[in-house]
Design a protein around this nucleic acid. Structure first.
Lengths: 138, 138
DNA sequence: GTGAATGCAAAACTTTTGCATGTAA
DNA sequence: TTACATGCAAAAGTTTTGCATTCAC
């Protein structure tokens, strides 16, 4: 895979952010330091990096699919109200994990835990009636 | 929520199928017995049934978001080659599950396990070079 | 030099929405 | 009777693609 400035910038951004950005958000962020970057290039690179296993794709929420390239093993918490995705580190003994994978009797290359609920901001009583856009970073 | 023929038919279909259909596939299937059913109505009902917790949404694969309404607790295996989704029943002691949920320190309303790999059909050596569409039910 | 990658813009898909009409309660 | 749901079609939003040009190797 050829090392282009665009690819390095996109991957670099996804490696450090913890925001699980969409393609659009990635484009907006990386473009700050590279104004000519096109959205098409972001999509093509996300596809390429996904193939190479350098990037992970998360379920499409209200704003579309989300991505991250954080290598450290972690799982995800999805806010069902605002769509935000947070990293979580649930305790799961590796023996249990391995037994679980063995029990489904398939060739598993990846394993994920997903938790759903309200994020801290959406759960706060004084925020119940405010629009998501007014109070929540997504 | 009003009980319409369309809503009953859509929910009924999602309760019995194990194919985790997309909105489009659901439309095609339910339409067989109700030719006037529109795709817009399928989307509106999926949204409504999702709000009521009667239907679950799965991550968008290559063909878009997928749905199921199977009540029995189960988790999912995603084929990374053809996009098929299969139900799996991994062994996970409830004490471990509860400890895991407690460990992330958030209000969790739902918890899912997702496994990724190649499905039986995509993993078969003689299928390696054939197009996905030629050999795989999605 | 050459093939892979990019920018741009159009096209293809997926999902949502407005509005007139139909229908369950 | 009336508010909710539907069908249709247009609009909005997301993702992919064709093509000429640029750039990494």
């Amino acid at each position: 895979m050829r090392r282009t400035q665009q690819r390095e910038a996109i991957l670099g951004f996804l490696k450090v952010t913890r925001a699980h950005p969409t393609a659009e958000q990635t484009h907006a962020a990386v473009r700050q330091g590279m104004p000519s970057l096109s959205l098409g290039t972001v999509y093509r690179n996300l596809g390429r990096l996904l193939d190479e296993g350098l990037v992970r794709e998360l379920p499409a929420g209200p704003q579309g699919r989300r991505y991250d390239a954080v290598l450290e093993p972690h799982h995800h918490f999805f806010c069902t109200r605002c769509g935000k995705v947070e990293d979580v580190y649930p305790g799961l003994p590796s023996t249990v994990k391995e037994a679980m994978i063995r029990s489904i009797d398939r060739e598993v290359t990846q394993f994920r835990l997903q938790f759903f609920g309200l994020c801290e901001s959406c759960a706060r009583p004084d925020n119940q009636d405010r629009e998501v856009s007014e109070r929540c970073q997504r």
